[in-house]
């Protein structure tokens, strides 16, 4: 249960930011303890997140990482990059496959548009396992400070 970001970079600068630029990847290492803590903190009693035997009965390979936890990681990926003065305006994600405890999960993203006047930046994001399985394609909109 930890987070690694490849570089502790300074907040992006609207003056030099352009479409096509990539965000530094973020890595997550969920374990059973994290799934338990997330179930508790989000008031989520769904059995597929804590009962291995039941999760397999439903056809999963193991207990699975919560969709909303992966969604919260997507927002963290953007807000860590954008810095505290930025405002997250929106995020969308699609559930394509399930993450499992013990897997390394990698968040990557690309800037798709920059509006220098309003500071609004659009991003295309993806969450993969470290062996390249796509779990969540996503998008985000964030407003950077225009000063």
């Amino acid at each position: 249960m930890s987070t690694d970001t490849d570089t502790a970079a300074a907040a992006p600068d609207l003056a030099t930011l352009e479409a096509g630029q990539e965000l530094p990847p973020m890595h997550k290492f969920p374990d059973e303890a994290q799934l338990f803590l997330y179930s508790a903190a989000s008031h989520n009693p769904h059995r597929i997140h804590y009962d291995r035997e039941y999760a397999r009965f439903e056809g999963h390979d193991d207990i699975i990482v919560h969709g909303p936890l992966q969604g919260a990681w997507l927002t963290q990926f953007v807000t860590d990059w954008a810095g505290p003065a930025a405002r997250l305006l929106g995020v969308t994600w699609q559930n394509r496959a399930s993450g499992l405890p013990g897997e390394e999960l990698v968040f990557s993203g690309t800037v798709t548009s920059v509006d220098a006047e309003t500071g609004v930046v659009e991003l295309e994001i993806a969450e993969h396992t470290s062996d390249g399985r796509l779990l969540m394609p996503a998008t985000a909109r964030v407003r950077l400070p225009t000063t």
Binding site: M1, L37, A41, A72, W73
Partner: peptide, 11 residues
């Protein structure tokens, strides 16, 4: 508690 469970320790 939620932020800690996510592992998002934004100040």
């Amino acid at each position: 508690r939620y932020a800690y469970a996510v592992g998002d320790e934004n100040p």
